[in-house]
C-alpha cells in the first residue's frame, strides 16, 4: 500500500509517495529529501540527535512515521540560517564551544530552538539543563551547550524587546 504525503520542509513544499509506511521522518529527510543535517544516533528516542520541529514543536524524528506528518510544517537544522547569517542559537553554540565532534549538534540546536520557543526555562541554567536532557552528547560538551542556550535565550529575548519597543 503506497501513501502520498505533502509536507513543507524549511519552507519548501514536497510531495512524496511512500511505497512503504515504515519510513520514519528521519529517514525521509536524510535519504529521500537529501537533507542529512538531521542525525541518527540511537533511532529509538533515547539520544535526541534526530530532533526537528514539527509544526513548531521539537520531536524525535526517528520515532515519527513519515505518513503521520502529511500536511505538516517541518524545520530542520538546514532551515535555521538565513543565507550566510546564522540563527542566534547557532552563533551561540560556536561562541561557547557547545560541541566537540559535532554529531549531536544539529539535534542540540533544534532542541534549543524548541526550548526557547516553549518559554518555560527562560535563562535559568538549571531549567535549561533539564529542558535539554533529551539530547545526549557523547563528547560531554554540556557546559558549553547550556551556556550557549542561556546566551541565545537572552539575546533572543532582548531582540524581541527591541522589536516590540
Amino acid at each position: 500500500m503506497s501513501h502520498s504525503i505533502s509536507l513543507t520542509v524549511n519552507g519548501a513544499r514536497h510531495d512524496v509517495t511512500l511505497e512503504d509506511a515504515r519510513v520514519t521522518l528521519l529517514d525521509l529527510l536524510r535519504e529521500r529529501l537529501q537533507m542529512p543535517g538531521t542525525k541518527k544516533g540511537c533511532d529509538r528516542g533515547q539520544c535526541g540527535a534526530c530532533t526537528v520541529l514539527v509544526d513548531g514543536r521539537r520531536v524525535n524524528s526517528c520515532l515519527t512515521l513519515a505518513v503521520t506528518v502529511d500536511d505538516s510544517d517541518i524545520v530542520t537544522i538546514e532551515g535555521l540560517a538565513e543565507g550566510d547569517s546564522l540563527h542566534p542559537v547557532q552563533t551561540a553554540f560556536i561562541e561557547h564551544d557547545g560541541f566537540q565532534c559535532g554529531y549531536c549538534t544539529p539535534g542540540q540546536i533544534m532542541s534549543a530552538v524548541g526550548l526557547i520557543a516553549e518559554g518555560h526555562a527562560g535563562d535559568d541554567l538549571e531549567r535549561i539543563r533539564e529542558g535539554m536532557s533529551g539530547n545526549i552528547c557523547r563528547c560531554s560538551a554540556y557546559k558549553g551547550i547550556a551556556e550557549a542556550v542561556q546566551d541565545a535565550a537572552r539575546r533572543m529575548a532582548a531582540d524581541e524587546e527591541r522589536k516590540s519597543a
Binding site: G45, R58, V59, N60, G114, G131
Partner: peptide
C-alpha cells in the same frame, strides 16, 4: 518522565 521532545509527541 521522558524528555521534552518525547512529551511533545
Amino acid at each position: 518522565g521522558a524528555s521534552a521532545q518525547l512529551r511533545n509527541a
